[in-house]
C-alpha cells in the first residue's frame, strides 16, 4: 500500500522536475547569443538585413522569449511536439533513428562495461592478490579522455592494422557489428572502472560478514559462496549505478558519436542546442531526463525488494 503511494509521489515529482527543466532549458537556449536567423546569416552571404527581419517575423522570433515558451508549452501539452527547425521534419522523425543508434552503441558498451566490471570487481574481492591489477585497469580506463582513446583505437585498428572500419555505420545490409566494435570499446573502457570499483568494494565488505563464514564452514564451495551468497548482497550499489547509466542510453555520447561519425542522440542534442532548434533540443532533453528518473525509480523499487531493511 505504502509502495503505491510512494510511486505516485515520485511520479508527481518527476512531472514537476520535467516542467522546471523545460522552462530552464528554454530560457538558457534563449540566453545564447544570436538566434537561428543570425546563424543563417553566417551561412549565406547573400542574405540581407531586410531578409533577416522578414524571416524573424515569419518564424515568430520577434516575440519575447516568455511568450514563445508559453506557446511551445501549450502545444506540447496538446501532444504536438512540432517540427525540427534544422531538419524541417517532425521532431519524432529525427529522434527515432538517433535513438536507435544510441541504444545500440550505449547498450552494447554499458552491457560490456557492467559484465566486465562486475567480473573484475568480483575477481579483485575474491583474490586480493589480483586487486592491484584490477585497480590499474580501473584507474587508467577512467582517466583517459574518451576522444584520445578513440583516436588511438582508430589509428591502431582501422588505419594501421586495417581490421575494423574507422567509423560510420553499415550500409547495404552489411554487418553492423563490425562498425560497432571500436566505438563500443571506447565507451566500455571508460565505463568499466566504475562497475569494477563498486563491485569490489561491495563484495569485499560482504565477504567479511559472519554469515559468509558460516556458509563456508558449512562446506559450500568457494564459487557458490561467491556467487550465490555474497553477490546478491553486493548487487544493490551496482543496480544504483546501472540506473544512473540508463540515462546515458538515451542521451548518447557526443564525443564518441562525432569521432566515429555515428549520428546518435548525443550529437543530435548537441547540434540542436548549438543550432537553436528549440523543439528538437527540448524534446530530446526531456526524454533523457524522463528515462533517467524512471530508471532511478525502478532501481529504488528493486532495492527495496532486494533489501528488506530499506522498505
Amino acid at each position: 500500500m505504502a509502495g503505491a503511494a510512494l510511486i505516485l509521489r515520485r511520479l508527481a515529482q518527476i512531472a514537476i522536475t520535467l516542467a522546471i527543466l523545460s522552462f530552464a532549458a528554454y530560457m538558457l537556449i534563449g540566453l545564447m547569443p544570436g538566434d537561428p536567423i543570425d546563424l543563417a546569416l553566417i551561412g549565406d552571404p547573400r542574405l540581407t538585413a531586410g531578409d533577416a527581419a522578414r524571416l524573424r517575423a515569419l518564424h515568430g522570433l520577434d516575440q519575447p522569449l516568455l511568450a514563445r515558451y508559453a506557446a511551445w508549452a501549450a502545444s506540447v501539452l496538446r501532444g504536438e511536439f512540432g517540427y525540427s527547425r534544422l531538419f524541417a521534419v517532425p521532431v519524432a522523425d529525427v529522434l527515432w533513428p538517433a535513438l536507435r543508434s544510441s541504444l545500440a552503441l550505449l547498450g552494447g558498451a554499458l552491457a560490456i562495461a557492467a559484465t566486465g566490471g562486475v567480473a573484475l570487481g568480483v575477481l579483485a574481492a575474491a583474490r586480493p592478490r589480483s586487486a592491484g591489477f584490477v585497480d590499474a585497469i580501473a584507474v587508467i580506463g577512467q582517466a583517459m579522455p574518451s576522444f584520445w582513446l578513440g583516436i588511438l583505437l582508430i589509428i591502431l585498428f582501422a588505419v594501421t592494422l586495417g581490421w575494423l572500419p574507422a567509423g560510420g555505420s553499415a550500409e547495404d545490409g552489411g554487418s553492423a557489428l563490425r562498425f560497432l566494435v571500436l566505438p563500443v570499446a571506447t565507451l566500455a573502457i571508460a565505463n568499466v572502472a566504475a562497475y569494477a570499483r563498486h563491485t569490489a568494494a561491495a563484495m569485499t565488505a560482504t565477504l567479511t560478514e559472519p554469515w559468509i563464514r558460516t556458509a563456508r564452514a558449512k562446506g559450500a564451495s568457494r564459487t557458490r559462496v561467491l556467487w550465490r551468497h555474497a553477490f546478491p548482497n553486493a548487487a544493490v550499489p551496482i543496480l544504483t549505478l546501472a540506473a544512473l547509466d540508463a540515462g546515458a542510453l538515451v542521451s548518447g555520447a557526443v564525443v564518441t558519436e562525432t569521432l566515429f561519425a555515428r549520428p546518435g542522440m548525443g550529437k543530435l542534442i548537441f547540434d540542436a542546442i548549438m543550432g537553436n532548434d528549440y523543439n528538437l533540443a527540448l524534446v530530446a532533453l526531456l526524454l533523457v531526463a524522463l528515462v533517467t528518473m524512471l530508471a532511478t525509480l525502478a532501481a529504488d523499487l528493486a532495492q527495496r525488494a532486494l533489501d528488506p531493511r530499506l522498505a
Binding site: 515529482q13 522536475t17 522546471i20 527543466l21 532549458a25 538558457l28 537556449i29 540566453l31 545564447m32 547569443p33 544512473l244 540515462g247 542521451s251 557526443v254 548525443g266 542534442i269 548537441f270 542546442i273 548549438m274 533540443a281 530530446a284 532533453l285 533523457v288 531526463a289 533517467t292 528518473m293 532511478t296
Partner: peptide, 26 residues
C-alpha cells in the same frame, strides 16, 4: 535533497553544453 536528486537525474553533458554556450556577458 530534491534539488540534488533533480540535478543528478539531469543529462549533465547536454546541459553543460547549453551553459557553456551562454553568453558570458549575460
Amino acid at each position: 535533497m530534491r534539488l540534488a536528486d533533480g540535478l543528478l537525474a539531469l543529462p549533465a553533458l547536454p546541459l553543460l553544453v547549453v551553459l557553456a554556450a551562454v553568453d558570458p556577458a549575460v
